[in-house]
Amino acid sequence: MIAKITAVADLDFTSLSLSDELENKLRRADLFTRTIVACCHKLLEGQAINGKQTGLFVATAFGPMQCNLDVLDFLVEDEPVSPTLFSHSVFNGASGYLARIFGIHGPAITQTSYGYPFFTALAQAKFALEQGQLKQAIVIQAETYSQLLEDAKGETETPWPPGSVAWLLGHEGVEVKDIMVQESPCPPEERLHYHVTCSSGTTHHHPLAMTLELNRLFLAKQLPEKYQTSSAFGKATLHFGAAR
């Protein structure tokens, strides 16, 4: 089966609002989980999903970092850790919510890197579809960062807007032909500086920006046949079929 982009969605952190039903299901969830679930909800609106044949491929650079730090708060104060916070600080906690709320029972792979996590997850999802392991795949990235990270970046750098981006892959839409990701070691300051140049001519300054641009191009039916990125932390090349 050929892997095609059926639908895309993105969620700006400032527009994060949940229905009462979702709010109820997420009452204990941290911001990272809430963001990713809200984006997935937006992605799947009007889409038919076969839960047993759908996989989840979650990507993130920093994961639930604030939740991680909230757990550290207990440790540095020598207090017993909150079990609820701890279970949400685990990176794949969000995929557990996605599986439960949207009835997805295929594989759920969460992977992390500071470079191109979405593209790496996309490559894994693409393969699973092409091999017939799955009929559909949700590829989703969320970033919610933390004040600690913002302070490390310093005031001179462009702020990183929290949010989430998601693609639904299936058998209809624009073909994902080929993906090549090559991440490289780089000085830590380059990770915070975050400077990615793309073949579209755009320069991106935060970890969700590339996929946001691709979403915009997809919705405008202007997805290029070849999309290349280059940065201090590596390069990626994606080939797409003709936009429809």
Binding site: V90, F91, S113, G115, T120, P185, P188
Partner: peptide, 30 residues
């Protein structure tokens, strides 16, 4: 410590030490 954290992607560090090229990924599935 922050620099170490930002250098801490295990797959990338291993790649750096081995001097290899190819796909890297850290799977974080509990």
């Amino acid at each position: 410590p922050m620099a170490c954290f930002l250098n801490d992607n295990l797959a990338t560090i291993i790649q750096q030490i081995l001097g290899t090229t190819g796909p890297t990924s850290v799977i974080t599935n509990a």
